[in-house]
């Protein structure tokens, strides 16, 4: 057990770092993609709201693995066109494709979370903003967004943990995250304990994130 870990320490660490980086990047980028979608879902009754709902339903309905396959392998069918557009460097790379799939997926879930918390902000807050003569943009950026974020933090934290687990699917499209390294080492050793070591990594990582999130939540609870 120990030689499988210490002997391959640098690979395990590389995988751990890549898992942490990919999940964090996708959650952060996904948050900014989710914001306009959540706003459209919450405030727009017209075409924008409809499009946002369509986005959410589609990307919450497609399994992430299928979405990754669709983007990474599916783009291969259009390699000539993508080359013409100068986009091939992006779709050729499993890392970029994987990240795109993760972002599209988490943005749909985060949009619903943020919409939920935007909808629970009481009308009196909006009236106060109007009374203070804040422009809609200032009102959103300085008041609504911070409150919505504080309210949404527990479910967003949950989403972060789900994304840490979801990055493991990157291994299937040849990215060497934690899961990818585990599969690689397993293919060399055929030793099942490799997967238990990977499991221990994920367990510790998730528990650490949960602990950090609880502390952060306690600090901004007053706003929610």
């Amino acid at each position: 057990m120990f030689e499988l870990y210490f002997g391959e320490m640098s690979r395990w660490n590389d995988g751990l770092i890549l898992t942490a980086v990919m999940s964090t990047l996708s959650v952060v980028i996904g948050f900014f993609v989710a914001l306009p979608i959540a706003l459209a879902r919450s405030k727009s009754k017209g075409i924008l709201g409809f499009l946002a709902l369509g986005y959410v339903n589609i990307f919450r309905g497609v399994p992430l693995l299928v979405l990754m396959f669709l983007i990474y392998y599916g783009s291969g069918q259009f390699s000539r066109e993508l080359r013409g557009l100068g986009l091939w460097w992006f779709f050729r790379d499993a890392y970029y494709c994987g990240l795109l799939a993760l972002v599209l997926n988490t943005a749909a879930y985060q949009a619903e979370i943020i919409r939920g918390s935007l909808d629970t902000i009481s009308a009196s807050v909006l009236e106060t903003n109007a009374a203070l003569n804040l422009t809609p943009w200032t009102s959103f950026r300085r008041v609504l967004l911070p409150i919505a974020f504080a309210k949404a933090l527990p479910p967003l934290g949950n989403e972060y943990i789900l994304m840490v687990k979801a990055t493991s699917l990157l291994a299937i499209i040849t990215v060497f995250d934690l899961m990818g390294q585990a599969r690689m080492i397993f293919s060399e050793t055929f030793d099942l304990r490799v997967y238990y070591i990977a499991a221990a990594h994920y367990l510790v990582l998730v528990l650490l994130i949960e602990w950090a999130l609880r502390r952060f939540e306690a600090r901004i609870k007053w706003m929610a």
Binding site: I161, K165, A166, T167, S168, L169, A171, I172, M179, A182, L192, Y195, Y196, A198, A199, Y202, L203, V206, L207
Partner: peptide, 15 residues
């Protein structure tokens, strides 16, 4: 609950 909520589904499946 802690274990099965923390491990990626794919890893649980393989193990």
């Amino acid at each position: 609950t802690t274990v099965f909520k923390s491990l990626p589904e794919i890893l649980t499946l393989l193990i």
